[in-house]
């Protein structure tokens, strides 16, 4: 890994950390959701500070260069995150739908009761 790439990764990770911790300070993010991003940022910091670790893993996986390994890892982690978010959105949409229908049916019943 070049020094420039390492510096960029560290700066980016610090930015992610600061933004996420700010969101928690302002009570705008749940701790569960912040955990992924803090973990992600810390991982990149570790690889930038100890590039030997990334070199070793890169050799193990067989990627041409360590930078490629870092990209691959980021793509993989983001894909997993995207998948889990997609699942959560499905569940959320189902819950919202159930709630809206429930409110409408409850209202209808209450109106009938008060009307009769």
């Amino acid at each position: 890994m070049t020094t420039v790439l390492r510096i960029v990764l560290i700066l980016m990770s610090l930015l992610v950390l600061v933004v996420m911790l700010r969101k928690i300070r302002q009570s705008k993010a749940k701790i569960e959701d912040a955990m992924f991003w803090v973990f992600f940022a810390l991982l990149l910091v570790v690889f930038s500070v100890f590039p030997q670790a990334a070199d070793w893993l890169s050799g193990l996986v067989g990627t041409m260069s360590t930078a490629n390994f870092i990209f691959l890892l980021m793509i993989f982690l983001l894909l997993v995150k995207n998948f889990s978010m997609s699942m959560r959105i499905s569940q959320l949409e189902t819950k919202v739908k159930d709630l809206v229908q429930r409110i409408a049916i409850d209202d209808n019943e209450r109106e009938k009761e008060s009307g009769s």
């Binding site: 928690i24 300070r25 302002q26 701790i31 569960e32 955990m35 803090v38």
Partner: peptide, 14 residues
Amino acid sequence: KMLFSILLIQNFRK
């Protein structure tokens, strides 16, 4: 989750 939250995150809450 608890250890991570207690040791790292809670320190930054306002």
